[in-house]
Design a protein around this nucleic acid. Structure first.
Lengths: 334, 334
DNA sequence: TGCAATCATGGTATCGATACCACCATCTGA
DNA sequence: TCAGATGGTGGTATCGATACCATGATTGCA
């Protein structure tokens, strides 16, 4: 691979087509502005040379990078993947590309990645991470681009937020269990310092339980190499050990709920008669062909598409928070 | 958001620090090449102005974009996510960023996306998609960059391939079932025209079964909105209807196997006594806290890291195929 | 002490495209 | 017939950084 071939330039194409470089540029960017005959000549030369327009140079001279930076918490949970699909498809219609990085749920990593994204002079920055260090926040506020925070509705967004209320979702689930006659309801989550979303769902649970019943909250310390189902299984065991008469278990995510569900099967506990289980996210396995899990569904693709629309229209009032809501899907597990 | 703030330039920083622009460039790129005092002055000015180096301009003048393009089949299956993490972490050490697009398993989409990636003049292109149109292949072969194909070992790679043999994996799983006494073994997959991987696993199954037993292959037509578990559940039902005495079912992926597993539970069929189930991918739910599924594990992160190493070292012989293998994880489902 | 080597720094050309302005040919309408 | 509008095309400056070469200051060693 060391044969250092060179990239063809617009000048090469222009020479071959017998026109000026600017005409080549127009033929490729705004084909309507050149005559049919020149357009054909240019296209022929482009095809023969295998030319691909150099966006790097284009970005510099036009001062438009046609790039949108995205910083997600992780790629390994499917929740963000649908958002990215919606976002990326929406942006593609406007000729924008996604430059992607993952923070692994660490605000320090996020703070380190933001400058690397800004270095590409993106036209907007999309974040699905929920917490920023003071430095990062300052950098975002000074930067000359729109910042969109997704999957959450922070009190004080940097610019614009598109998401839903995790707290309301936590309440809605708790309310559902109360409405179906449960009173001794536990909550299991992870004790991750920077996972504000899980904590917000917990707050929702607390809001709803107030005065009705006692709290049964279990926050598990993260362990290296452990997966969602591991925590879920462990969570169910510990909850039933500490509060044996628990009737329902709200899990902070579907993967935890799935682990709890499997653990219940193994222990011979009937779901939902002995214990009801709920999750969050409506992942594939939660469907009726799978575990039939009661859960909260977020339309991740819609969040992404909405963000793309906002970016393309440029219509962003500072401080806007767009609530796309959620839906509670009741299935056999409750 | 319409307050059109301007980006700070290196010239602004240089003026503020009282040095030349080139010195600012050196202070940021190769801090060892400037004196302590100027370095401090520059860093102070950078901090005060909130300057972020413009990589767009840098790419043009240095003829190094510091970008690697990646084209994955989908972001919505966790298998590629770990590869992307390994790749992105590895590249970050060399100061390279990932520009990502998803083909949605469609070679036409891939062909359309390749030029948009090449437009950024990436230093390498990574593909996890397995099939290219003739046009796309021609473009890749002419382009002046290394092309890495991941997750597979094509007969004739464009340049370099890093992956494993899906065919061998299909054989290994079939062999495992035979070795544990099963003879009437079925295979269920999806009838997706462009999913060469699934077909390769099926070939492996056929290789191994030859002469020993009859083939029981079910390829389900894709339906809009259907999920892996849906196909798995349907697959188990149809297989048992057509071949009631089937002893083991090899599913083309874990999500299918999970659906089959749940369907077996619902139908009261004991796994593995009445029917053994196997998957592919070792996703979270396959672990012992979850479904305890016998499956094939691929070290996706290792594939990504290896690709990153190759890119950073530049040490790529044309035609190289690197086989990172797989491991068969036996769990309770077989 | 003197000369070469090294270090720190700056000036200027350059990367490959696009913006802006200028130009020419053709067309329109009085 | 000619002024003015229009459509198609090209020349040149420019975007913001880095490469290359040149310069002056400092150091090392005989």
């Amino acid at each position: 691979m060391s044969e250092a071939r060179k990239w063809v330039t617009m000048g090469d194409v222009a020479a071959r087509a017998g026109v000026g470089t600017i005409t080549v540029s127009r033929a490729l960017r705004t084909p309507g502005k050149v005559s049919q005959t020149t357009l054909a000549k240019v296209q022929k030369a482009v095809a023969e040379l295998g030319y691909v327009l150099d966006e790097t140079a284009g970005a510099l001279s036009s001062q438009r990078s046609r790039i949108v930076g995205a910083l997600v918490s992780t790629l390994e949970e499917s929740v963000f993947a649908t958002t990215l699909r919606g976002l990326s498809e929406g942006l593609a219609e406007g000729g924008l590309q996604l430059l992607l990085s993952a923070t692994q749920y660490d605000p320090e990593t996020e703070a380190a990645l933001i400058p690397t994204l800004l270095g590409r002079r993106p036209e907007a920055l999309v974040l699905t991470s929920d917490r920023h260090t003071p430095d990062a926040r300052a950098l975002l506020e000074r930067a000359a681009l729109p910042v969109l925070e997704l999957w959450d509705l922070p009190e004080r967004p940097v610019h614009v937020a598109v998401g839903f209320s995790n707290r309301a979702a936590g309440s809605a689930m708790t309310r559902h269990l109360i409405d179906t006659g449960r009173r001794r309801i536990a909550f299991v989550g992870l004790d991750r310092a920077h996972d504000s979303r899980g904590h917000l769902r917990l707050e929702g649970y607390r809001d709803c339980l107030r005065d009705l019943s006692d709290e049964r909250v279990l926050l598990l310390p993260p362990r290296r190499g452990a997966t969602g189902p591991d925590y879920g299984a462990q969570g169910l065991r510990e909850v039933l050990r500490r509060w044996p008469d628990t009737q329902a278990l709200i899990c902070v995510s579907d993967t935890l709920a799935a682990g709890a569900w499997c653990e219940a099967m193994r222990a011979g506990l009937s779901v939902p008669d002995r214990i009801a289980l709920t999750g969050f996210g409506d992942f594939d396995m939660a469907g009726s062909s799978g575990l039939a899990l009661t859960t909260i569904r977020i339309d991740g693709a819609a969040i992404g598409r909405r963000a793309a629309e906002l970016i393309l229209s440029g219509d962003m009032e500072r401080g806007t928070r767009i609530d796309l809501g959620f839906s509670l899907i009741r299935r056999a597990s409750s």
